[in-house]
């Protein structure tokens, strides 16, 4: 009920406020560093990062490293999502199988998966593969659990009604269970976006010859904090873009859901 929410700024106003807030935080950082309250040698400062970014770019490395990290994260996201959905449907639809296997997956989920990063580098080498596998493993669990939960919470009334309309098992899966799981799958992918980047970066820390994680790790060892911060800035932008794309997909796929609006309830 937008009309009744007096004092709630519109979307464009929200963007202006958001950007202003970001700039204010940057200004505070800049001032703290310039006035010597924090040491820019360790903390860097926005003006230094702005100076470093074009240099990083002109050395020809920025795009290359970003592309490598993006490729790892996106491949990880894609593979993890596909496997997550497929395994969730397999275990969700074959109930007995699900009951047997699901506790195993939960147990494996309990292992801190980043602890596996060094061994993945050992097994799959210094190239992209070990990072893609790391990233997809992180994504897999998020998508799997979310999708599995979605399959298990399909509306019983709808299932009965469609069964009474004469639907076959296959039709029920395609026309009821799959579409009703879409919001759950998307929730898993939303978590997976961040996880895929974490998987790629941490994989690169453990052993790589390129990628933003590798740049961060090597720049840190040379105390090039400005370069580290440049990389983090790029990851920040990548994160924003990822989320914008997902939001767009969600709007497209979930237009059948009533818009949530909590204004006035808080």
């Amino acid at each position: 009920m937008k009309h009744f929410a007096f004092g709630t700024p519109g979307t464009s106003m929200q963007n202006v406020i958001r950007i202003a807030l970001f700039l204010a935080l940057m200004a505070i950082w800049e001032l703290l560093a310039a006035s010597g309250v924090v040491n820019p040698f360790y903390s860097s400062q926005p003006s230094q990062i702005l100076r470093d970014l074009p240099q990083f770019y002109s050395e020809g490395d920025l795009l290359k490293h970003t592309a490598i990290t993006l490729a790892e994260a996106l491949w990880g996201l894609a593979l993890g999502t596909v496997f997550g959905i497929v395994v969730a449907f397999f275990l969700g639809l074959f109930d007995t199988l699900g009951k047997i296997i699901e506790p195993f997956i939960t147990a494996v989920y309990g292992i801190p998966k980043l602890a596996l990063a060094p061994i993945f580098v050992l097994w799959f080498g210094l190239g992209l593969e070990s990072k893609i596998i790391m990233a997809s493993l992180l994504v897999f669990f998020l998508v799997f659990f979310s999708t599995y939960g979605g399959i298990k919470s399909v509306d019983r009334n709808i299932l009965t009604a469609v069964r009474l309309m004469g639907a076959s098992q296959g039709q029920i899966v395609r026309k009821v269970i799959l579409p009703s799981s879409v919001p759950w799958i998307l929730a898993g992918v939303r978590g997976g976006l961040g996880a895929s980047l974490i998987g790629a970066i941490v994989g690169e820390y453990m052993g790589a010859s390129a990628g933003l994680g590798w740049v961060i790790s090597s720049a840190t060892s040379f105390f090039k904090v400005d370069r580290v911060m440049s990389c983090i800035f790029i990851l920040f932008i990548v994160g924003i873009v990822f989320n914008m794309i997902l939001k767009y997909i969600e709007r497209l796929l979930l237009k059948w859901r009533p818009p949530l609006d909590y204004s006035g309830t808080l």
Partner: peptide, 17 residues
């Protein structure tokens, strides 16, 4: 179940999507 019978239940059984 037979297709000769149409069943309208108390609950809302429309597919929301």
């Amino acid at each position: 179940i037979t297709p000769r019978i149409g069943y309208i239940s108390q609950s809302d059984s429309l597919l929301p999507w």
